[in-house]
Simulated scan of single mutants.
Amino acid sequence: MGAGIPEQRSGQDAPFLTVAEVAERMRVSRMTVYRLVHSGELPAVRFGRSFRVPPGSVESLIESARYTGS
C-alpha cells in the first residue's frame, strides 16, 4: 500500500457504508436508499451533508424484509 493511503476495506469490515455502497449491496438506486433513511426504516448517521450507514443496519433491514411465502 502507498504511504498515507488507507487500505480499502470490504463493506462488512467498514464502520460505515456510503449511500452508494448500500445501494450497490441492495441492488437498488441511491434514491431508494435516501428514502429508506429519511423514512427511518434504515438507521443512518449524518456527517456534514452526507449520510453513512452502519453495515449491521443494512443486514437487519434485509433480514426483516425477507419474504418466506405461505
Rank of each mutant, 00 (worst) to 15 (best):
L17A: 02
A23M: 00
S60Y: 08
L42Y: 07
G48P: 09
D13V: 10
D13E: 15
Q12S: 12
G11H: 12
L61W: 10
S50N: 14
S10N: 13
A20N: 01
P54N: 04
L17P: 04
F47P: 00
S57P: 06
M31G: 09
E41Y: 03
S50D: 15
F51N: 10
R52T: 05
T32L: 12
G40C: 06
R30K: 15
P43V: 02
R25F: 07
S29D: 15
H38K: 14
E41T: 00
F16A: 08
V33H: 05
S50M: 13
S29G: 13
S60K: 11
F16E: 06
E63F: 10
Y34K: 01
V28A: 09
F47H: 11
R30I: 15
S57L: 05
V37Q: 01
L36H: 13
V53T: 07
L61I: 06
V53I: 15
S10Q: 13
I62L: 14
S29N: 09
V19F: 05
M26Q: 10
V28S: 09
A44H: 06
R46M: 14
P15G: 04
E59F: 07
D13F: 08
P54G: 07
R52I: 04
R25A: 13
A23T: 07
S10W: 14
L61C: 08
M26F: 03
I62N: 01
L42D: 00
R52E: 00
R30L: 07
V28D: 11
H38L: 12
H38Y: 12
S39P: 11
P54I: 00
E24T: 09
G48A: 07
E41V: 03
F16C: 04
E24Y: 09
S60D: 15
A23Y: 06
L36M: 14
